[in-house]
Design a protein around this nucleic acid. Structure first.
Lengths: 348, 348
DNA sequence: TCCGGATATGTTAGCGCTGTCATAACAGGT
DNA sequence: ACCTGTTATGACAGCGCTAACATATCCGGA
């Protein structure tokens, strides 16, 4: 055995950068010549610490390369500064836009967002929620308003604010920010009629909200005498490929022209490509209306007519509501309808 | 003051669901008639607990609705079971696919992934890394190989495995999984030549990796006598709109036909739409080659020729490498090249 | 000069869990 | 019956931080 080791670990304060093992508050405190709690305050409540002291602490932190441990901090303060967001799929831009705004806003407010990808089956929402509650988030965003009783129970007994999104319900768990799928369906039907189509087709993803819209459109259409309706259902997640596939299904089932309502812009883009490849005139022979007004919708050729949802507003309202709840401020309303708008472009 | 309150909080074990305040390990332990550590073991190392005891604990957990607190667990065990992933943008499908696979795999392994959205400026990578290290992740995924010295230091002194992705470097911080942008540029140039184009254009996002590819293609082209080259640069994030804009720029700068290499499929799709709206024949007059082989690329009309990157493989290799490091297993190699492939379809 | 009240800093205990070691319970061989 | 080796459980301390309270320090006014 070598005797050349030092017996004690010496903490040399002179070299500007020196990281050995884990730097803790105590070490920083010792170097700054103050107590641990003062360092804690200098970081979290700087206004409670004298400028001189603050400066000493700042230097000690820089010298040691201290990075606070929020596992410990969260445990002690009973606030993790974490917000959970559960969405059906990260790989779906429609949700990504909402979430992107959501996390940026929260970051500015000193929170981090942890994402849960429920996958479309949604069977495992409960499992996901349980896993995420394990991190003791200070708030949680959910997509949709349908949750198993066990899941609701979990959420409720976590005693944290909950925002449900992308849908509306008269009885939210806590707060809901969304829009009315039935109303959308109705207005799309009226728009189809206004445009003079007397036949209709649907290319819808196998998703409860999409199906709600389709059903509503269908009913309104029938009520108005348009009964020549053909439907195609495709699995989630949506893609151009499935849009093309759905179109072929429609054609095989005898679709001979009319309006096609797609449950997403992505599907609509596929429908458009398939029709173009068959030289079917859009919108003369077949009209297309999408859903979402995604960034590309205005730039397809021809440009896509669609239903605009203000996805960023959903994110914004969700942040505001959650933040209000967290800071015990009153929320204006616990049911927020962000509405929608039919954007008339060239495909219908 | 009312005297009707009970003096002691009574924990009634009879009602199946009863959650008051926070249920802790101790409470579960008391109800199960064992010690706290046994409950902990029943959850984390069930094989170390007798089946009978395990069952008692399971029931106590169900009765109380206990949800473990991983802030405390992580602090005590010095393992957060968190993996951090830093990507330029959640709202970019190209990264989302890698990340989606990445998080699913990690979930199966008992880890959760926390996402950091660095935004394209990348100036704040350092700040982001610092914020994320605060959670004491067990591993971290980075996008790109360029990091500030301070950032590298932070990462290194965190003593956790690091995977850099989407690029290659001979000297990774720890592990790198990516591909060679210079080689891609070269092969695209050769492909353009093979296809017989004698003029070229570029629509590239203002992104270092995209620019590396462009430069490489350009050089190879020039070396082969193709000097009629026009370039258009668009900001990030890419979109169809910017693809159309870039095309207009090219045209204004005197582009009169030839091959266009786009830094992403999304841009390429915009280029295609713009050309179609001007009745310029693709690929006869203008050839288009994209980058990424995103899901829609095969389904545009005409179908998009592009460079395929196996994004899922990047995710897979990143998980494998990280997991190996975490469990102290050897990694096959700390530099993993996932390669690429030119996919010949209709636009070029 | 002294004192009240603000401001700044420190002491203590404990957040909820797990690592470590000690002890108890049990089976099997002699 | 005894001992040995295994398996199952428990006691205790401590992870790194902050809430709550306690104490020290400072300032201006009587």
């Amino acid at each position: 055995m070598s005797f050349s080791n030092n017996e004690k670990k010496t903490i040399s304060t002179s070299p500007p950068e020196q990281v050995q093992g884990d730097v803790t508050l105590d070490i920083v405190a010792r170097i700054a010549g103050v107590s641990a709690i003062t360092v804690s305050r200098a970081i979290n409540k700087p206004e409670k610490v004298a400028p001189k002291t603050r400066e000493k602490v700042k230097q000690a932190i820089a010298r040691t390369g201290y990075v606070p441990n929020l596992l410990a901090g969260g445990l002690a303060s009973r606030s993790s500064k974490l917000i959970a967001a559960i969405i059906p799929s990260i790989a779906n831009l429609v949700y990504a836009e909402t979430i992107s705004l959501f996390s940026n806003r929260f970051r500015e407010a000193g929170y981090q967002v942890i994402l849960g990808d429920s996958g479309y089956p949604e069977v495992l929402e409960e499992e996901l929620v349980r896993a995420i509650l394990t991190r003791r988030p200070d708030g949680i965003l959910l997509t949709g308003v349908d949750h198993s009783p066990v899941c609701k129970n979990l959420l409720l007994s976590a005693h944290i604010p909950v925002v449900e999104t992308w849908d509306l319900t008269p009885s939210p768990l806590d707060i809901v920010v969304g829009f009315d799928h039935v109303k959308i369906g109705r207005q799309v039907a009226e728009f189809i009629i206004e445009k003079g189509y007397n036949k209709a087709g649907f290319v819808s993803a196998d998703d409860s909200r999409a199906l709600t819209r389709q059903r509503s459109t269908q009913e309104t259409l029938i009520k108005n005498g348009i009964t020549n309706i053909i439907t195609a259902s495709v699995p989630v997640p949506s893609s151009m490929e499935l849009g093309r596939l759905g179109t072929r299904q429609l054609l095989e089932k005898g679709f001979t022209g009319g309006a096609i309502f797609c449950s997403s812009d992505t599907l609509a883009q596929g429908v458009l490509a398939e029709l173009q490849s068959r030289n079917i005139a859009v919108p003369e022979k077949v009209g297309i209306i999408g859903f979402g007004d995604q960034v590309f919708a205005a730039f397809t050729h021809p440009a896509l007519t669609t239903v605009r949802i203000d996805r960023k507003r959903i994110g914004r309202e969700a942040v505001d509501a959650l933040l209000a709840r967290i800071t015990d401020q009153p929320v204006k309303s616990n049911i927020i309808d962000v509405g929608f708008e039919i954007i008339r472009r060239q495909t219908m």
